[in-house]
Design a protein around this nucleic acid. Structure first.
Length: 710
DNA sequence: AATCCGTCTATTTTT
DNA sequence: TAGACGGATT
């Protein structure tokens, strides 16, 4: 059986597990995707189920695509039509199929986070809510949190006046969405959950159809997603959950690692299979990762190993400043490139996006090509949003969000007053803006009427046209392209709009349904690439979060400073530090052959210089596997026989009379090593503010503190 | 309706 | 430092 060739014993056991639910603890680089896809192929090949008898769920569209590609490489079957997708994608599919049962219009629109934000703002305005007490962002978070707990407005706990108001606003938001036929991300999940929960026939239909349910990145599921799975699975179905609790880094978004333990209990898991053999990194890198993560208390437990030898030590570099760190990075990368490493095989990771600036600056000055991941994605761009809004109005005239977005864009003399007037009319008539617009008279009415004519003629002209041509007509008729052509910096936007035509042409809908609605759902569910074009050999820059799931020949983890990584905000959060450590674990395990850890003594943050202590994570990695590229003040390691880099240059302020200066490292008998961050007073009366990293920030009187220069 | 200016704020972000 | 936002100005 060629399918099962070259699987290690644990992988093999997982793939061929008999019909009972199982939890696969798959460490980084342990062949998780391979196990998942081979399992599917094996189930089908052995006649256990047909391609349509299983459902596989992932978190990203990319992962879903990858899975389908691999399956079709393993089996001579048509994978189109298989239920492999993201939670949201699969829910969308169910809701489209059963929109009536779910209480939704056939062409319901999906709101992405941006759209939702706008919708909440609109609702708050209509409800006359005090913007200071109810900021849109907070209300949005409240609503999403409630939905992810499976709570409707009536289920929200009301403790005080404020929570009562929040619940009311939530209700108003729901009403608005329902009226407009709009569904946000969390709603896709909750609606489907409620649909299955209330409708026994449907529930049984899907339960008997999907005998096998497979879940990827299980540690990232939130409470609602877990309940959804539990509901869909029922007692007789087999759930194959793959995850790694050590790589749970999205708790702040509602991911609940606790689902893993709960899953074991709820599904009577007999088999927890650990995939611990790592096929990605060399020994020293894995040792570092293992040692680090061992500092976490709550773990299911796992130790990665490799048969490929220790490899190179983990290199550590200390820089005087963020700028110096960046310059060193460039030099080091240049030497890696000279050794023949492709730039695209090198990643620079950082904890927060703001850190990329300094690095980018240095790379730019050195003329080194790089690519930054993150930022605006294709379908999130303003001009694309505008274009989509026109399309949305065609699909669903009651979409007030779309109406407001483009009624006066490009400008056609519809002012804020007109729109307000219109909103009032719509509200009192209990109808959508579009419907109310027809009745508006007077001068304002004329402008509005012109807009309606545009939409109506668009509608009739695109009737029956293939999607691609419909988009072309829309771009033309709406005046969007013309508008951006006439704008001085509009060239990129025009290009993007034309790219939208390509996207429409390339879009192949999965089954049945309305082209346009399906394309709009696609646009909302898959916001597109957020990385520059492939092809050119360029260095990869990204946050540690977005590096999850990727691997590189060489990895630089930068900015390893207390307060930055671990982030200072994290210490206030329950379990925050452990999550930061998991994040560091993810960072380390991205590297195949070479891993660099770097930090800087000073860093410009929020417009002022901060003096930092090295991250505690550096101390949590055994010194034996580390090779310091810069001199260290204390401690030693066997590998410290390296040529030391140029002496550190810290910008030095004038030395005050007491002999201590800002930025200086000092040693305190109780608090250990710290860095002077601030000082006031002079002579014997001076007080120094010292950052002791883990011990915190302290103000010490020089007279009493027994400080010595370190 | 577009632009300018002061104020505020500042992790991470699969869908 | 830099961007986002709201209010005021042209």
């Amino acid at each position: 059986m060629s399918l099962l060739e070259n699987l290690n014993p644990e992988q093999l056991a997982a793939v061929t597990l008999p019909n009972q639910s199982a939890l696969i603890l798959a460490g980084a680089g342990s062949g998780k995707t391979r196990v998942l896809t081979t399992r599917i192929a094996w189930l089908i090949q052995t006649g256990n189920i047909g391609p349509n008898g299983l459902l596989a769920v992932t978190f990203t569209n990319k992962a879903a695509r990858e899975m389908l590609t691999r399956i079709s490489a393993m089996l001579p079957i048509n994978v189109r039509g298989m239920w492999v997708g993201t939670f949201h994608g699969l829910c969308n599919r169910m809701l489209r199929a059963h929109h009536r049962d779910a209480g939704l219009p056939q062409l319901f629109q999906i709101l992405d986070s941006q759209d939702q934000h706008a919708a909440v703002k609109r609702m708050l305005k209509a409800a006359n809510a005090d913007e200071d007490r109810f900021p849109p962002r907070e209300v949005q978070n409240f609503i999403n949190a409630a939905k992810e707990e499976g709570r409707r407005p009536r289920d929200v706990e009301i403790a005080d006046e404020s929570s009562r108001r929040f619940a009311d606003l939530y209700a108003a938001y729901e009403e608005q969405c329902q009226r407009e036929g709009a569904v946000d991300f969390a709603e896709l999940l909750l609606r489907t959950y409620e649909l299955l929960s209330k409708n026994e026939v449907l529930r049984e239909h899907y339960r008997s159809r999907f005998r096998h349910i497979l879940v990827d990145e299980f540690q990232d599921t939130n409470r609602l997603q877990y309940r959804w799975l539990k509901l869909l699975a029922g007692p007789a179905n087999v759930v194959f959950a793959v995850g790694d609790d050590d790589q749970s880094i999205y708790r702040f978004r509602g991911a609940n690692v606790g689902n893993m333990a709960e899953f074991e209990r709820d599904f009577h898991v007999q088999n927890v299979i650990r995939l611990e053999q790592n096929y990605r990194s060399f020994g020293h890198i894995l040792d570092a990762a293992n040692a680090l993560i061992a500092h976490n208390k709550r773990r299911l437990g796992k130790n990665l190993w490799t048969s490929s030898g220790k490899g190179e030590p983990v290199r550590v570099h200390e820089a005087g400043s963020d700028n110096e760190e960046a310059r060193w990075l460039v030099e080091e990368i240049q030497s890696l490139a000279r050794e023949g490493l492709r730039l695209a095989d090198i990643a620079m990771l950082y904890r927060s996006n703001a850190q990329s600036r300094v690095i980018e600056h240095a790379l730019f000055s050195a003329g080194m090509p790089y690519r930054v991941y993150g930022g605006l994605r294709f379908f999130e761009r303003l001009e694309i949003k505008h274009a989509l809004a026109y399309l949305r109005l065609l699909a669903n005239p009651d979409d007030d969000g779309a109406f407001l977005r483009v009624a006066n864009f490009p400008a056609r003399g519809i002012g804020a007053r007109t729109l307000e007037q219109l909103q009032d009319a719509a509200k009192s008539g209990g109808m959508s803006l579009y419907k109310a617009a027809g009745a508006l008279a007077g001068k304002a009415g004329a402008a509005i009427a012109a807009f309606l004519r545009i939409v109506e003629s668009l509608r009739s002209e695109t009737q029956g046209l293939p999607l691609k041509e419909a988009v072309e007509v829309m771009l033309e008729r709406s005046g969007l392209v013309a508008h951006y052509r006439s704008e001085k910096d509009g060239a990129d936007r025009v290009e993007n709009l034309l790219e939208l035509v390509n996207a429409a042409a390339a879009y192949i809908q999965e089954e049945d349904a309305n082209d346009l609605a399906a394309f709009l759902a696609h646009a909302a569910l898959e916001s597109g690439d957020n990385q520059a074009a492939e092809g050119a050999d360029a260095l990869q820059l990204m946050t540690v979060h977005s590096a999850k799931g990727l691997e590189f020949q060489a990895v630089f983890v930068t900015g390893l400073e207390e307060g930055l990584f671990p982030h200072e905000q994290s210490v206030f959060e329950d379990d925050g530090l452990e999550e930061e450590r998991r994040l560091m674990y993810v960072a380390i395990t991205r590297a195949r052959a070479r891993l660099y850890l770097s930090f800087a003594q000073t860093r410009m943050l929020h417009g002022q210089t901060r003096y930092n202590v090295a991250s505690r994570f550096l101390d949590e990695i055994p010194a034996g596997g580390l090779k310091w590229l810069t001199p260290r003040l204390r401690g030693s390691s066997p590998m410290e026989d390296v040529a030391w880099a140029a002496p550190k240059r810290v910008p030095q302020p004038a030395v005050p009379d007491h002999g201590f200066r800002i930025g200086q490292s000092v040693l305190h008998p109780k608090f250990g090593q710290g860095v002077i961050v601030n000082a006031e007073g002079s002579g014997i009366d001076a007080r120094l503010q010292i950052n002791f990293g883990r011990q915190g920030m302290k103000w010490l009187a020089l007279e009493y503190a027994k400080l010595q220069p370190a």
